[in-house]
Design a protein around this nucleic acid. Structure first.
Lengths: 348, 348
DNA sequence: TGTTAGCACTCGATTAACGTGAGTGCTAAC
DNA sequence: GTTAGCACTCACGTTAATCGAGTGCTAACA
């Protein structure tokens, strides 16, 4: 890290430059700063200071005879110690609360909405992960025939998963089989169930039910799949197209590459998976591992989902994003989610 | 409609021009045609024919001294009577079949994958609607407590819907209530259930169960909501960003407008909702009702979902899309879906 | 010693002028 | 009816000229 021994004046000037650049997206010159700011200094003085700041690595000049642009280090310094608190309007806060409260009745969708809210508050792309409860109890398993060749398998943990299975089983056999499955599996955690267990159930069941053994195997496989798939992390992206609005991506090819990247859930999972650091974290430009995102910034926060599991909410935008606003928004949203989930998701 | 009395030669020339333009996206000149095609004609002759075709409204000239570009009418004529059959490779076909077959175990997702396949086959944006079974029987209703303050409501029709409800009810009461709900509601169709019915159940239930009446009302409301929400049409978009690849949208602002449009599900629903015409239908350019899409084309097909309900699968791309390929792809996919759904979704 | 006015200089961006070439329409000859 | 030939048009790419925002440096000033 670069030493932080900046004079008060330099700090003010740096802040002014970055604020200005975030707003205009154009190299800012000494004159603009000397005019706009209260600090009673001429452009010449500011010029000298800017030259210093450049030498220190906080600013760069796209070319001689252009104004200055913040470097990654400049943004980093800004985020760490310069930026002003952003105050989110009270209306937005209450609106957010209402929105989230209303969604609690569909917990599965809460996270999706959190991402939507983050992107609408900030107007950048937002990503949210909704880790399925990795190891929650199986509360119930059910098999319900829904059409002539189709049986619906339903597994209730903290969440509900269902999948249609092609099999010809009558209602009675379904009921018997689900009773049996419940007896064997309910109350267990997903981690406790391995393939051998399933095979054991198969052997024990085979003769007790009037189900074609081949079909039975199929169903048990699906049960196994469904239970173990439970740990899969869902991930949502919102407003990815917003990057088209920022001049730094007016290059269509680049924009398309980023959009493709943001569409690929594997990428996104890698992107947001990190140590469960509390608090808000920013990755600025090259601090980012992915090449394509190296002139973007990613600001993320962990929220806790019930007991141990935690999810992530992140905003992706241009390096010159409005960090103050993004930080404030993520802080607000994650706090609200924590409150709500902490209350409702406590294991009973 | 314009009269169809084109000489064979004119037809050949028009076809060649459109084929070429679809490929290059650049105005095509007489020389290119006279060289490429087998018809042994000089550029001068072709020039005359092109002038005729322009007068007839099939071609337009961006400016004097540029080649010709097909008009909407030109594309229409091409689609109606010029375009060659496109043969989809056998590998793609078998791959598609396997993919769909594999997804049958999750019928709800089948349509989503159909859209994905359509967009990957054609490389244009694809939209698919998955109308929920509007009026299927309620097979089962279940209430399962999943956390200290949360009860999961599960409604099985042909599909499974679930939603978490904040309520403190113990397992026993849940069971009693679900038994009661099943007794009253199972076997009915969604249409048969109105709000009065729910209220009646409430009155009848109130005293039999040890559930806080306020909570009971809440739950019944959710049951009602969930059952009636069943008719809601789900809609999926895929590969919207592909439009960035086509030079006609290199204008970023326009591209963003279209992307926004394609993100708004309300728009999309309006876009694809039409009379359930069988067969494949194309809306070319201005034939489209939405202003933003007036230099796009939309090709759509209906697939039938079980008995009466039908869904739509559509591809959206530039007017100079590869119609033959798109038609063939949609034809293939919709046929496969019809086959699969016709078999598995038959009401039992 | 720090600040500032003044000035020469740099260099991207904008505009203008110009040549190039793909393509046309028309005419006259085959 | 077809085609070779030719004058004409006009978007596009290149080059040259101009402009101006912004800089660094120097010298004067408080």
């Amino acid at each position: 890290m670069i030493a932080v021994d900046l004079s008060d004046r330099k700090r003010k000037i740096l802040q002014a430059i970055i604020d200005e650049y975030i707003w205009t997206a154009e190299p800012v010159g000494s004159r603009a700063i000397s005019k706009k700011e209260n600090l009673g200094l001429s452009s010449a003085t500011i010029r000298n200071e800017m030259a210093d700041l450049e030498e220190m690595g906080y600013l760069v000049q796209p070319h001689t005879s252009a104004g200055r642009v913040p470097s990654d280090a400049g943004y980093r310094f800004y985020v760490n110690s310069l930026m002003q608190n952003y105050k989110i309007g009270m209306e937005a806060v209450t609106q957010l609360r209402e929105l989230l409260e209303a969604r609690v009745s569909q917990l599965e969708k809460l996270i999706k909405y959190a991402a939507a809210i983050a992107s609408s508050l900030t107007d950048y792309a937002a990503v949210a992960t909704a880790p399925k409860e990795s190891n929650s109890h199986i509360r119930k398993i059910d098999l319900v025939p829904v059409a002539s060749h189709t049986v619906m398998l339903i597994v209730v943990t903290r969440d509900v998963q269902s999948r249609a299975i092609n099999a010809d089983i009558d209602g009675e056999s379904c009921e018997k089989l689900s009773k049996l499955l419940n007896a064997k599996l309910a109350g267990l955690k997903a981690d406790d169930i391995d393939f051998e267990k399933i095979q054991k159930i198969q052997r024990e069941t085979e003769n007790k039910l009037s189900i074609n053994p081949k079909v039975l195997i199929d169903i048990l496989h699906f049960v196994y799949d469904t239970i173990t798939a439970d740990t899969e992390t869902e991930i949502y992206v919102n407003n990815a197209k917003s990057i088209l609005r920022y001049p730094e991506y007016s290059n269509v090819e680049k924009a398309e590459k980023i959009l493709s990247f943001l569409e690929d859930k594997e990428n996104l999972k890698k992107l947001v998976e990190t140590d469960g650091n509390d608090g808000i974290e920013a990755k600025i430009g090259k601090e980012n591992d992915f090449e394509i995102l190296q002139d973007c910034s990613l600001v993320s926060v962990n929220y806790s989902l019930g007991d141990k599991t935690s999810g992530k909410l992140a905003v992706i935008g241009p390096k010159r994003m409005n960090y103050a606003k993004v930080f404030a928004s993520l802080d607000l949203i994650s706090n609200e989610i924590d409150k709500i989930l902490g209350y409702y998701m406590n294991d009973g």
